[in-house]
């Protein structure tokens, strides 16, 4: 019987008692629950990572202007900027995460990891990490498995959908997956991997989903960049033996609780936050067709 990814504590215990690495537990889950062969899983991960690399490349080299006009080649502007705030590597991280997400906003091909709204984070983080540390693709595939394990638990304890748990459920989950993966790639222990995920959740907690005009553009694209940065800061903290204090399982449960109590106007309905600002509403009026029939409630309707 494989491990069913209901808690981080359980994942750790299972890996210890079965003498397996964290990613091997995920591999066994997929094999047993989905009847997948090991070679199919590795080739699936290879395909996913190739799509991620392509998205970063496309987003930072090709014309990336969305139909609304709100997204206008941001990744390329960052990559070509004369000013370097921290380091060339940081600039690369930011432009890569922006680029992959801009591809998504412009109807291009991405990996929803865990969702399309957060599809810039893992590509930005892992392509940058790989170029700095000269990692093998195989190491990245193993990190992706660990990220998948993190997401499987978050799906059960909280949610991965913005409409259910707000932006924290999408970019927050992706950042937690990415930070766990970074720590794994750099040789961190199980505790450090989980601390990184926990710290990341703490940093992303409470983030609302308030897309301007209901489009996955503003603030989604810039949040993919900031989530990639937070994934890295959390990994740096965790790898330096700093504890998340609140265990990652409890962080995940907190994310679920916060998501549940969040009002629906902050859950992808484009009715609160940035979407409800004067400029946000003016943009919505300009961009979206307005003659959509909205009935007061389903209860009043005979279907």
């Amino acid at each position: 019987m494989c491990f069913l990814f209901d808690s981080f504590e359980g994942w750790k215990t299972y890996s210890q008692t079965h003498n397996q690495q964290l990613h091997e537990v995920v591999l066994d889950y997929e094999k047993e629950q989905k009847g997948a062969s090991e070679s199919d899983i590795w080739s699936g991960l290879a395909k996913a990572y190739q799509v991620m690399k392509d998205a970063v490349h496309t987003g930072t080299t090709e014309e990336m202007k969305s139909r609304s006009g709100m997204i206008d080649n941001g990744a390329k502007k960052v990559a070509n900027s004369d000013i370097t705030v921290l380091s060339p590597e940081f600039k690369l991280l930011i432009s890569s995460a922006l680029g992959a997400k801009e591809v998504n906003s412009c109807m291009g091909r991405v990996v929803a990891a865990p969702t399309a709204g957060a599809s810039g984070i893992l590509p930005g983080v892992f392509t940058t990490l790989q170029s700095i540390h000269h990692l093998e693709d195989q190491t990245i595939y193993e990190a992706l498995l660990i990220g998948a394990g993190v997401a499987l638990i978050l799906e059960q304890k909280a949610s991965l959908a913005g409409a259910v748990g707000g932006c924290q459920a999408e970019t927050g989950s992706a950042a937690a997956m990415a930070s766990a993966g970074i720590v794994y790639c750099l040789g961190g222990s199980t505790d450090q991997i989980f601390n990184a995920a926990g710290i990341t959740i703490q940093c992303m907690l409470g983030l609302v989903c308030d897309p301007v005009a209901g489009l996955v553009e503003v603030p989604c694209v810039v949040r993919n960049a900031s989530a990639a940065a937070i994934a890295n800061s959390s990994a740096q903290i965790a790898l330096s033996h700093v504890s998340s204090v609140i265990p990652v399982d409890e962080c995940a449960e907190a994310m679920g609780e916060v998501g549940q109590s969040m009002e629906s106007r902050y859950k992808e309905t484009a009715q609160g936050g940035l979407a409800a600002t004067k400029t946000g509403q003016a943009l919505a009026k300009k961009i979206l067709i307005q003659d959509i029939e909205i009935l007061p409630s389903q209860d009043a309707e005979e279907d």
Binding site: L4, V26, Y29, E30, Q33, K34, A36, I41, G44, L45, K47, A48, V51, N104, S105, M107, G108, R109, V110, V111, A112, A113, P114, T115, A116, G117, L122, L144, L145, G147, A148, A151, L152, E155, L160, A161, G162, A163, M177, L215, V216, E217, E268
Partner: peptide
């Protein structure tokens, strides 16, 4: 039914939101 690793790292898709497009 339990989710797959490739629901978490995937699907490979077109469109801005997995809830609103792929699903």
């Amino acid at each position: 039914e339990r989710s797959s690793v490739f629901d978490m790292i995937g699907p490979v898709m077109i469109g801005p939101s997995s809830s609103h497009t792929a699903g």
